[in-house]
Design a binder for these strands. Structure first.
Lengths: 339, 339
DNA sequence: TTGTAAGCGTTATCAC
DNA sequence: GTGATAACGCTTACAA
């Protein structure tokens, strides 16, 4: 791949041993606080000093090779924009996993799935793989397990049949929004589906959830395919007849809600007078709009801390029961002025 | 760290060799398309088949150990929220680096700096490290080079003295905004500095850039420490005397600009009548506001493709000249209704 | 054209 | 308590 390193070689444990005047194994014992091995305090101290002096940093690959598995929790991420909840959640999760001796790594891969993708992830012999549920196949999971990956965790809108799952419940988001709209007396409901295809993974469940909740109350919903740019959105709105125009819209998320509100207002429609609008994700900016945007807030039923603990436990025990829910997001309405 | 893997061991190149009836070395040759080694097509095919059948995935750590360096481009990221430009830029960069055989990896680390942090990054023997300029020290860079890291790249508002740099020019952003405000006839200028301390890295340069540009035109700027929440921001605005109130404000970025606009309007101030407001980052949402927000758009002087190419070249050649600018963002005003 | 064998730096199993 | 020593899976001279 690349040329060999030039310049001074990095210090190895052998170098440390030489400097400290002990055997190489002793260095390893000291560095890892090996259990069941007694090392005198003086030796311990000398080794520590020598390591410090040489700027010794154990070679992660050598360790992984020897142990058969790294301490990495691998999160392969294609180009999907990460929502706000997820963003915060994973930052926190990463911080917490460190406390358990793991390192959360976002791995910029292609958008492949199944066994082929799994093979690439497996190269790194991670302790766990955290990946979108729809990128897993039975063969892929098998491949990962065969590669010594202790734990495969799926992420998706519902429990995966292939692995324990972090459930980000997009169905509930749609349902919550629609229930609110109905409670506010709206009956001609519209649900935005982004025109941008990369959002389909989230949009599908949000729409379905909305549809189901509406159906349960005997209300129909209409699908509104909306582009995220103002001009395109304006065209969509301009195409509405007064009669068939919705009086309540779940706009997929706050971003689309803002575009929609703007173009509807420009078209002379009052929000919420003529049309109520509900977004999702509860972006800080939404509450600054006129009218302030009603939104579905997505929260977790469990803290990132609990997920981190559980994940660690699963890695250690090599648990791999499918269908288990490690985390489930909950949806709740934040009622403001737009609905 | 964790228990050893259970179940079937992952297939090794030796397993593949056995199945294909060739030597282990041959497997390596075939898998890597080794240059200067002729392998008959039939052998090649048999090896390929065997690898496929066993679901063989080469052990990245073994490869790294042997070669002394991995193909990873490591990007250690603490909890700093990534701006929009940066987000898009790095997604693109990641995609492009794959084409060169590298893998961009976001590494969730602590927020340490200097040699200690470098030691942790060095563990992975990455081909390159991409990191915030202020986390680098001379010792840290030396440590990385000693660990065989071919290339250390800094990211910051100006060329680093320690490494080649991706310059995200926050000075220019502040300057651009203030020049615009002055051109629009504003003379009592305010510059927002977020109350949130984690933004200081960006806020400092943006403020300084604004200050310098103003000074060059004989105008003073006033520092406005603004919290990001509406109530806090409202308090700040309420504290202004009519006389000393600014007539033009650079609001740090679009987020703060939106809060500021909202609370100023609620306080009875007209935008841009009484106060002109300029944001930065040109968020899509800004143009949806009333009035539509003027913003400083941050663009690149070079495409991510060029940076990827250059970075690859640097890795291969182990170039490490400090002061070189690999990328420099440019700032340009997007004039809308708020100024 | 293919096989043999020497390491890469670490951890773990034994002797001492 | 500490020190040899044998893997771990791979790449790459060099031998055949």
């Amino acid at each position: 791949m690349t040329d060999p390193p030039s310049g001074p070689r990095p210090a190895t444990s052998t170098d440390v041993a030489r400097l400290a005047g002990v055997s190489q194994a002793t260095v390893s014992y000291v560095m890892n606080d090996a259990p069941g091995v007694k090392i005198s305090d003086s030796t311990r101290e000398r080794v520590r000093q020598a390591a410090e002096q040489l700027g010794y940093s154990p070679h992660a690959s050598a360790r992984t090779l020897r142990k058969g598995r790294s301490d990495v929790v691998l999160m392969p991420v294609p180009d999907i924009p990460v929502g706000h909840l997820a963003g915060r959640f994973f930052r926190e999760l990463g911080r917490l996993l460190r406390g358990h001796g793991h390192t959360l790594v976002m791995y910029g891969d292609t958008d492949g799935r199944g066994a082929t993708a799994a093979r690439e992830w497996a190269q790194w012999r991670p302790a766990a793989v955290l990946v979108a549920a729809d990128r897993l196949t039975r063969a892929g999971v098998r491949q990962l397990h065969a590669a010594g990956v202790a734990t495969v965790v799926a992420m998706g809108p519902r429990p995966s049949l292939l692995a324990p799952t972090l459930v980000f419940d997009d169905y509930a988001i749609g349902g919550c929004a629609v229930e609110h709209l109905i409670a506010r007396g709206r009956r001609r409901l519209g649900v935005v589906v982004p025109a941008e295809p990369e959002l389909a993974v989230f949009a599908g469940p949000r729409f379905e959830g909305a549809e189901r909740a509406a159906a349960a109350r005997g209300v129909a919903v209409r699908r509104i395919v909306l582009p995220s740019d103002e001009a395109g959105a304006a065209e969509v709105v301009a195409g509405w007849d007064a009669g068939e125009r919705p009086d309540g819209i779940f706009a997929y998320n706050d971003d689309y809600a803002m575009v929609l509100m703007r173009v509807m207002q420009d078209a002379g429609l009052a929000v919420p007078g003529d049309v109520a609008v509900v977004g999702a994700d509860d972006l800080p900016l939404g509450r600054l709009l006129r009218p302030r945007l009603t939104s579905v807030r997505v929260a977790g039923d469990r803290s990132a801390a609990q997920v981190a603990d559980r994940l660690h436990q699963m890695i250690v025990a090599a648990e791999r029961e499918a269908g288990v829910v490690l985390f489930e997001s909950s949806a709740e309405i934040v009622h403001r002025e737009s609905s």
